[in-house]
Design a protein around this nucleic acid. Structure first.
Lengths: 174, 174
DNA sequence: GAAGATTGATCCCTCAATCTTG
DNA sequence: CAAGATTGAGGGATCAATCTTC
């Protein structure tokens, strides 16, 4: 490591960063492979379907859904196009403002989510939830939020991010 | 969120999982975009170069390097081919066992790593290291190791994962 | 003109053969 | 025939235009 204006990581910091960095590669790969094997879907596709299913009317604007899934509009647009062909989503312009596009999860799409969710939750439990103590989960969630806020200061607290399915509180862009 | 044989996540677990899941998407995207902007390289390509630089003789077997970078042989082989064309790596069969392939970082490759590392470390500090307290980093690293071991029980402790560079320490951070 | 959304070109990753060595 | 490594085909992601609506 050469020096310039950034202090190199010491041995401890390096170990910590390495552990996290390794997780960043392995866990998504594992979730994706599992979803691929059990459902023939990418993990991201599942996230889109599952995300839509929790919103009122199972409907959301493309741009809000992109934020919610930590994705880009371009990537999302491609995925939604594919899912439309499978009959799981429909698209229409937002009647209140034609610049927005509303995506809706069809009944067939909702059925798909219902079929896939139990197995996915089981996997998340096995790898993450049941592997950590409650306190460890809290620590990791807090740390994650801090890092996310370093990436983007406008990141909302996760407390606001699990959308209410009652009433209509779609205010939950994440 | 239907039930079958897996218990659905409660609200708290869901928030915690959501925070981690969001991090899994955003942080790699950020590191990759940053490396792309500042160096025209993917974060993974940097990891490969940087990984090689810490091994004795700047040399490692393909299969070991694949494990070290949490990658697959196929993906690594493609990347190494690209980097060979840029003059940053060379390949040759392992003289002690012809089934293995040894990759070596050239001097030009090492120079590239030295040029890129300070800026990368600065970014890792900004997003992760300096954002968390020492205790938080420890908690996250421990949690990460636990999850990694749930994915693959043979995952070694991170204490073993920062290679000893006996003799020459150009100790890269990754 | 700005923001949402889509499309197309390019690049890279994944997966399934395939080849080689011991 | 096991395991390491490579290649080619197909699919998906990224980025830079482009189009539309307000």
């Amino acid at each position: 490591v050469t020096t310039e204006e950034s202090t190199p990581l010491d041995a401890e910091e390096q170990r910590q960063w390495y552990a996290l960095s390794y997780l960043l590669t392995r866990l998504p790969a594992e979730l994706d492979a599992h979803m691929q094997r059990t459902a023939g879907l990418s993990h991201f596709e599942y996230q889109v379907l599952s995300g839509l299913s929790v919103f009122p009317e199972r409907t959301q604007r493309m741009s809000d859904l992109a934020r919610y899934t930590a994705s880009t509009l371009s990537r999302l647009s491609n995925v939604v196009t594919r899912m439309e062909k499978r009959g799981w989503t429909t698209r229409r312009p937002d009647p209140t403002d034609g610049r927005f596009t509303l995506v809706t999860l069809t009944e067939a799409g909702a059925e798909q989510v219902r079929a896939l969710t139990p197995e996915h939750v089981r996997e998340v439990r096995r790898l993450v939830i049941d592997t950590l103590t409650r306190r460890q989960r809290q620590e990791m969630a807090t740390g994650a939020e801090r890092i996310l806020r370093a990436i983007d200061p406008s990141t909302p607290s996760m407390a606001d991010c699990v959308p209410r399915t009652d009433g209509r509180d779609d205010g939950a862009a994440r």
